[in-house]
Amino acid sequence: MVENPGKRAEPDSVSGKPIRHRPTKNVTATTRAGVIWTFTIVAIVVLILLVIFMMQNQTQATVNFLGFQGQMALGVSMLLAAVGGAVVVAIVAAVRIIQLRSRASTAAKRREA
């Protein structure tokens, strides 16, 4: 173990031996802005990969949906399907968050009464 220069080791009250202090590590605090920047970079990388995917899948595909039929680029149709799935997940998550907030509000009112 390395002692800090300029600091004297304090004796232990039980054994009388000097206690050696370890140097503190330099820890960087995580901030919200740092997390947002990280997710922004990840989102940009994903967006670039999606654009590459769409550019490589330009062949026309026949799309059938609820009785409608049309021609669309394969990459665009898959992107629209993924966006539709994300919207469904977001709706379910929003409903769950509203439900949890409602329960928390009801519980808080019970505690006050």
Rank of each mutant, 00 (worst) to 15 (best):
A33I: 06
R32G: 13
R8S: 09
N57V: 03
G16W: 01
R110H: 06
P5M: 01
V46L: 12
M1H: 05
I36S: 02
F65D: 14
R8D: 08
G34H: 01
A61E: 07
V92E: 09
A81N: 11
V27I: 07
F39S: 11
K7P: 00
G70V: 00
A9P: 02
A43W: 02
V83E: 07
A73K: 00
S105F: 13
R96D: 15
A86R: 06
P5R: 00
R8V: 12
Q69S: 14
T40Q: 10
E112N: 08
M78C: 14
P23M: 06
V63H: 01
I41A: 15
P5T: 02
D12G: 02
Q99Y: 09
A94I: 09
A43L: 04
V45R: 07
M1S: 04
A61T: 09
E112K: 08
G67M: 00
S105L: 14
H21Q: 11
G75L: 01
A104F: 08
A9K: 04
A108F: 05
N57Q: 04
E112A: 10
E3K: 03
Q58L: 13
A43H: 03
Q99T: 12
T59D: 12
R111W: 08
I44H: 07
A90R: 05
V35K: 01
L49S: 10
A113M: 14
V76Q: 03
G16P: 00
V45Q: 06
L74M: 13
A86S: 10
T30I: 11
T24N: 10
T106Q: 15
A104H: 08
V27M: 04
R20C: 15
S77C: 13
V45W: 03
L47Q: 09
